[in-house]
Design a protein around this nucleic acid. Sequence first.
DNA 1: AATATTTGTCATGAATATGTCACATTGAAG
DNA 2: CTTCAATGTGACATATTCATGACAAATATT
Lengths: 230, 230
Amino acid sequence: MPANILVVEDEPAIQELLALNITQAGHNAMRALSAEIAQSLMRETIPDLILLDWMLPGISGLEFARKLKSDSLTKAIPIIMLTARGDEYDKVRGLEVGADDYVTKPFSPRELNARIKAVLRRRAPQMTDDPIEVAGLRLDPTTHRVTGNEKTIDLGPTEFRLLHFFMTNAERVHTRSQLLDKVWGDRVFVEDRTVDVHIRRLRNALSVSGHEDLVQTVRGAGYRLSEKSN
Amino acid sequence: MPANILVVEDEPAIQELLALNITQAGHNAMRALSAEIAQSLMRETIPDLILLDWMLPGISGLEFARKLKSDSLTKAIPIIMLTARGDEYDKVRGLEVGADDYVTKPFSPRELNARIKAVLRRRAPQMTDDPIEVAGLRLDPTTHRVTGNEKTIDLGPTEFRLLHFFMTNAERVHTRSQLLDKVWGDRVFVEDRTVDVHIRRLRNALSVSGHEDLVQTVRGAGYRLSEKSN
DNA sequence: AATATTTGTCATGAATATGTCACATTGAAG
DNA sequence: CTTCAATGTGACATATTCATGACAAATATT
């Protein structure tokens, strides 16, 4: 459960405070006084979470966040923005760039830790090449095969990625746009409704092993893979 | 984000100053020259926060605060005490009665606004994706599931948001328009009474786990989620 | 090149959710 | 105990969301 947390903060005292907090919460703190330093640090170790000061000398927090989110290697790293009370922090712009949360200084340690915990928990597991098994379904990314109840399930490429994602993030509800992001990838000139169709195709394919209602629709929210009934 | 703030202050000049500050901070100021006036005002609108002068003609600030805190309808309203520098303000007694913060006159507008902001933020926790548990009910936004007493509770989208909001802000009374703001969001072309219907639907759904009277109605004011009985 | 597979989009009908009304109940003030 | 306003409740028309089959364009396979 311990995670690597990168603190990007130019004020030494505050950086120290943050690092202390993180350490006491059982995590490992990496420190950087600027975005530039952060970047070189990240060549060594990729952190699980970044605490990013809004105001930074050189590359600003906003810019840095944008840069991180545009690189597929670092895109998935959650970011918590730090803003001073006086700063007019534009929450919209912050979230737009992909910040997952933000905390205003001065912050209470409790609040900070709560948010760190929340963000880390929320973090979606990454799809790997490891075989994965959920609810009697087995998917092997390397051989590109799916089996359930002794039956082999035949899937198109998109359905395969879709199922892989669902199995990696089981139980969780995903909106159509989240699915487009995660399964379709970046260039999404695709209609939301298209997801529906692929869901149907996936369900259809899964029915050969009786797993047809593994993929559930949550009205008004999205879709979910769950073994529990609805 | 804008809140109704009730200013109870007998000195007109100071009251004016306070109201000005509040308005400029984007909130709505209600004014009362005495606790008595404040009370009758509150029959109309329940404020989100009360700025209460320590020294008042008639009912004193302390008494008024105590009275407010002993009434279940007003209990949850945060109070910021205003004290003159000369006054021997007993912080202990003030906090004892339930004042959330206090400010000494003369105050700086910045400080006042900062405290108002802080109290308001503390008051209305923002809804997050974290699972919440209240009174044996468990709601998980990520899986979009609600359970109570081993039972799964089935909710429509609106009822889900409604319950989520109630659980996030438990024990507090919410007027119908507040609920429309927070749960329905922008499209407030909706009748107040519509809330009633959704409350009923929510109660109905909650009854499968025996939590039917978790949502209580406060006559003349609104609704509240509370585990304690009425 | 011919053929098969995959993919995105649309149209349509079915399922579900939503807002409002009319009327029944309830509660509080006098 | 009346009376009146506030709230509960069932019904219903409308709006929204979703499932599904068809289809043409794009892509891969032979």
